[in-house]
């Protein structure tokens, strides 16, 4: 699953460490999410979306062929 997390985070001027601290996850998790190596749980996806004041589908892009 692709996502716009890195783009949105940089737009808001937040570091990976700061985002990780707010979401109470490790910095490595943020890095893995941004690289698309790890897909978040629905809870974490909601937390991220809520933090940025967006919908989940604005951040995470669902692709049919996976």
């Amino acid at each position: 699953m692709k996502n716009r997390l890195e783009e949105i985070r940089k737009q808001q001027g937040i570091t990976q460490e700061e985002l990780a601290s707010v979401l109470e996850v490790s910095r490595q998790t943020i890095g893995s999410l941004e690289n698309g190596r790890y897909n978040p749980s629905i809870l974490l996806a909601f937390k991220i979306a809520r933090y940025f004041g967006m919908k989940i589908e604005d951040i995470f892009i669902y692709e049919e062929d996976q």
Binding site: A20, S21, E24, V25, S26, Q28, T29, S32, Y38, P40, S41, L43, L44
Partner: peptide
């Protein structure tokens, strides 16, 4: 605590 409860680490 964050490292222990981190969902990726748990996975």
């Amino acid at each position: 605590a964050i490292e222990t409860n981190d969902e990726r680490n748990q996975a």
